[in-house]
Every structure is written in C-alpha cells, then in structure tokens.
Amino acid sequence: MTSSRGMIVLKRLAQAIPTLFGVIVVTFILTRALPGDPAAYFAGPAATPESIAQVRAALGLDKPLAAQFLRYVQDLATGDLGQSISTGQTVLSDIVTRLPASLELTLSALALSVAIAVPLGILAATRQGTFIDHLCRVVVTAGVSLPVFFTGLALVYVFYYQLGLAPAPIGRLDFAYISPPPVTGFFVIDALLAGDAETAGAAFGQLVLPAVTLAIFTLAPLARMTRAAMLQVLGSDFIRTARAAGLSRRQVLFSYAFRNALLPVITTFGMVFSFALGANVLVEKVFAWPGIGSYAVEALVVSDYAAVQGFVLVMAILFVVVNLLIDLSYTLIDPRVGFDG
C-alpha cells in the first residue's frame, strides 16, 4: 500500500515535467509575440535608433528566437529568472518578496472562506428548503455576481471611511511599523515569531479587509459544491444503510456523508486556490497589496518579458504543486484512487 502510494506520487511528479516544459515554451513564445518593444521602453523616451539597438543587443533580443530560448532555459537551470527591466531587481528577488504577500492574502482568505462555505453548504443540504438553504443561495449568488473590486471598495468605504474600524488600505503594513524579520514571509506570523505583538496586530488589521473581500468571492463555488456533493451523497444507498443501522445523525453526517462529499469539494478548492492566487490582481490593486498579481500586470503593461515569464512559471509550478497535493489527499480519502487510475 505504502509503496503503491509512493509510486503514485512519483508518477504524478513525472507527469508534471512535460507540463512545466510546455509552460516554459508557451510563455517564451507568447511574451515574444506580444506587441511593444522592451528595448525601446528600456532605452527611454529620448533614445535614438542606435541606442535602442545597443540595448537590444545587451538584452540579447537581436539573436534568433531559438538562441534566445536556449539561453533562457540555461539561465532557468541555474535559478536565474533574469532581470526585471521595470524594477531593476532580479525577477527571482521580486518574486521572493511578492509571492508571500499574495500567499498570505490568498491563504487567509481561503481559510475564512472554507470555514464559512463548508458548514453553510452542509447545513443547506441537510435543511433543504429552509431559511439556511435560501441564505446559502443568496450568498452564493452574491459571491459570484459582485465583482471583487466592488466588494473591496464597498468594504473600504464602510469600515475605513465611515466607521473607521479598519486601517487605511495601503498595503501589508502601515508606514509607522517596520516589516518584521522575514522567516515565512507572512507578516503576521513573522511578527509573532519575533515577539512583536503590536506589529502582528497591525499586519492582521491590514489583512482583514482584503481577505474578507477575496473570501466573499471564493465562498460561492465552495458553498455550492459542498451543498451539491452533500445532497448527492445523502441520497445514496449507503446512507440509508447507515440510518437503518441506527447510527447517530452526527456519525451519518460526518463520517459517512461528509467524507464522501469531500472529494468534489477538494477538487473545487484546488481550482479556487490556483485561480485566486493569480487572479486577485483587483483585490491587490484596491488595497495596494504588493502581491504577485499586480506585479505581473505592471510587468505585462511594459512588456517586461523576464518578469512576466517568471510570474507565469511560478504560477505553473504552484498549479502543479497544488494539483499534486490534491491528488495526494484523494489517495488518503478514497481507497479506490490509484487502482483504476
């Protein structure tokens, strides 16, 4: 059993290699196909054709595509993602500082979202047609139909501008505080590790509104999937058997129904996670959150090849890792996985 699980893990990892290679090729070509000349941008508005050509040569952009690609792959192999032409930093260091910001936001938002969506979905499924079911429907509809920039702005308006409960939406930490020494890259945790409760509180305060905004958005698919999966499982024969055997409602609901309903919920969770990480640009923009999403958009606007490639590559790796984790949690939950797959 253990060895077969080990084999599954190895197989899944091996399957990720062609995916990653494909991503490298596609992003490389895609960024080259984008309109806009990075050499011209980098050389500045006053540049002459000669100086642009000089910059192009310095960036290696005058070489044939194949040669550019080869150089790109060689650099990747040594961990060199290139230099961002807009920030002047290496792409790797940009990502190292910005990715934790996005992860902190996304993970806390998803934790909140799961904490609300899963119980809500279960309740809606067990009390079909009651108040809680209608509430679930309203929350789901609102969650998908309200764009995040709107919910974000509305929350800022109410909690910062009107009530003054929340801090100003100016990123991860107010200027009055110094960033905690980086350990995990998550400010709240790092500050706590450093024993600085005040900074931790401030960082947490900054995190609440953007996390809630993102949670409202990600809640919808999770709640809906939980409800649907629970309804389907509750209607199945083995639940009837469990009831006929006199098992308590709690046990029927949790160890029989919910564990079976978990599989589609986890799949949805994985999709929502990957999606939220890359697509929360709007939330990051509204709250001036220095995350990887806004970084990518800024890079894209100025044709910053290296930065965009770095972003897409990191996202692809994250997707692969998340999917791997999901597959692994499948094998833990469902003994059938790995036998027919």
Partner: peptide, 21 residues
C-alpha cells in the same frame, strides 16, 4: 431500535456500503 432490534438488508449491496470505509 434500528440496527439493534430491527435490521435491514438491501438490494444492490455494493452501493449499500460506504465505499471509502
């Protein structure tokens, strides 16, 4: 009473058992 005094067996026995336990 269920399971201790009155018990039931069903058709389609494979579906009548929890598939992941």
């Amino acid at each position: 009473i269920r399971g201790r005094e009155i018990s039931m067996i069903f058709q389609n026995p494979r579906a009548a058992l929890n598939p992941i336990r």
